[in-house]
Lab assay of single mutants.
Amino acid sequence: LVRYRTISKIPQITLNFVDLKGDPFLASPTSDREIIAPKIKERTHNVTEKVTQVLSLGADVLPEYKLQAPRIHRWTILHYSPFKAVWDWLILLLVIYTAVFTPYSAAFLLKETEEGPPATECGYACQPLAVVDLIVDIMFIVDILINFRTTYVNANEEVVSHPGRIAVHYFKGWFLIDMVAAIPFDLLIFGSGSEELIGLLKTARLLRLVRVARKLDRYSEYGAAVLFLLMCTFALIAHWLACIWYAIGNMEQPHMDSRIGWLHNLGDQIGKPYNSSGLGGPSIKDKYVTALYFTFSSLTSVGFGNVSPNTNSEKIFSICVMLIGSLMYASIFGNVSAIIQRLYSGTARYHTQMLRVREFIRFHQIPNPLRQRLEEYFQHAWSYTNGIDMNAVLKGFPECLQADICLHLNRSLLQHCKPFRGATKGCLRALAMKFKTTHAPPGDTLVHAGDLLTALYFISRGSIEILRGDVVVAILGKNDIFGEPLNLYARPGKSNGDVRALTYCDLHKIHR
């Protein structure tokens, strides 16, 4: 019993810090008490220290592992850092350059016999395009090294910054494609005289377009951006097909006994025919423009016929181009109408809503002055909100995010209106959640004399007048207030005048 009563005193000691020596009952000389009392004092002292730490809000209350900052290894790049964003855009520009100039170089340097010394005699450094290609190869190699040090988000939505895990993730992902696209074939085969082989191998750079397509997928929600990307894709495919079309004609031209190829026909049409040795002929500019003209006309199913396939190889390629053109029509131009419709969806919704308003007016036989006010209010409210119901949009977000959005939407009023000066951010967040926005066209009466005042109004834009009878008592403008002081009276009061809008007004109100 003594032991039980001794232990039962522990909660009292913990909360009230009572010393055991003052209790005459606990001072009985028993061996059990002498053993338990020192333990009680020690526990009391420890609990006292913990309570003191909690009340003082000291940093040592938290466990040590929670006080440590997340460790980022040296030379690790955050995937959302500004440097990584700028670097990704730079790589994107280099990939676009590669997609345009690599097929052009591979096709127009394929057994090209233009006048001038061969590239091997001039030297590697004197070729501007080769120098640019070398810079692109170096940048792609540097990009691989950067990807080995860039964080990523795993399946659990955690940012991984450990170098080993980053390397394994990159090896399992895009490393092989990036490595093949970054191989400097110019340096590996330079001086061997195989410019045709170098041009063909350099087309491996186009593998990076797969990554670019995935990154550009984030802009699919913007109709104008999608339309622009589709047109660029169409032009890029036409450019690639033009390079292939020229390569076919250029390879067949020296081996044909009869002059029936499209390059021969082009030379005869523009007065620059090929001679018996295969030299001469149109310039590279004429060849490229004509090839691009043929691919565009074939892809769009126009086909004027002034550039036509004559050999079997050219006919087979033309059939493939027609098939590609039909697929592009289905996948690209078939979506253009939907994209344009999405661009004008706001206008369509406006006309639909206006039609419903006019049908309501016609069905209920609203008189002319009231009908005009109804239409003007709808037009003004639509121009202010673009038909978007803010309350319906915010309803799907958590309250903390709703408060931040409301604070942002009402920031101008909260910053410049005098009653809100000096208020804490928590108070402003709470008030912003209570605001209701209303609009009024010129001549609209917001409050009639004798109406119950259940709200306090803040003028965000425009001006109003307060009338008693036919006498203008006051004219209020931006950041002015009218209405009933909230919670100042037990019952809502009545208006002693009319409140009429002089201009288009936007008002925020808080109800009782």
Rank of each mutant, 00 (worst) to 15 (best):
M328I: 08
D143C: 01
A155G: 14
G396H: 06
V302T: 14
L370G: 02
F397D: 01
P442A: 08
I183E: 01
D217A: 08
G267F: 04
T295A: 15
G422F: 15
G193F: 12
P282E: 01
P367M: 03
L109C: 01
E114L: 08
K172C: 09
P184K: 01
G303P: 01
G422W: 01
K285W: 04
S337L: 03
G396S: 15
W89K: 01
I248S: 01
M251R: 04
V302P: 01
L401M: 08
T102Y: 08
R362V: 03
W87A: 01
Y384G: 05
D444S: 10
L413I: 10
P309H: 01
F190Q: 12
G396T: 13
E221D: 09
L327I: 05
G278F: 01
L401S: 01
R342T: 09
R211M: 03
R74E: 04
T347C: 04
I177Y: 05
L188S: 10
D404M: 02
Y344R: 04
G281T: 03
Y384D: 11
K436F: 07
R349I: 07
T76W: 01
L327Y: 01
I141K: 01
R362I: 03
G426V: 02
Q372M: 13
A242G: 01
H162V: 11
E112C: 04
V336A: 01
G422S: 10
V159Y: 03
G267W: 01
I141S: 05
I340E: 01
S337N: 15
W174A: 04
L323N: 01
V95S: 01
K287T: 01
D268I: 14
L201F: 07
T385V: 03
I270K: 01
H408M: 03
E376I: 14
S383H: 01
H380F: 10
L134N: 01
G281W: 01
G261D: 03
G116K: 09
T438N: 09
V132M: 14
L446C: 01
E221S: 07
K111W: 14
S308N: 05
G191E: 06
S331T: 11
G123I: 05
I91R: 01
V159F: 05
G199C: 12
S308D: 01
L67N: 07
P254N: 15
F363Y: 08
L109K: 05
Q402A: 03
K111H: 15
L145I: 01
F435I: 10
G396P: 04
W87E: 01
K215F: 03
I332M: 04
L431D: 01
D137H: 03
L209E: 01
F101N: 03
D178A: 01
V447W: 04
Q379T: 07
R358H: 15
T438R: 08
T233S: 14
A430C: 04
G422A: 13
G280R: 03
I141L: 07
V180T: 13
I237Y: 01
E195R: 12
L93T: 05
L241V: 01
F378Q: 13
H73A: 12
L279D: 11
V447E: 03
G199N: 09
T98G: 01
M256C: 08
W89Q: 01
F108S: 01
M231P: 01
F304I: 03
V289I: 15
P82H: 07
S308E: 01
L414E: 02
W75K: 04
A107S: 11
L229K: 01
R356F: 15
F190V: 14
S308I: 03
V142P: 02
V131D: 01
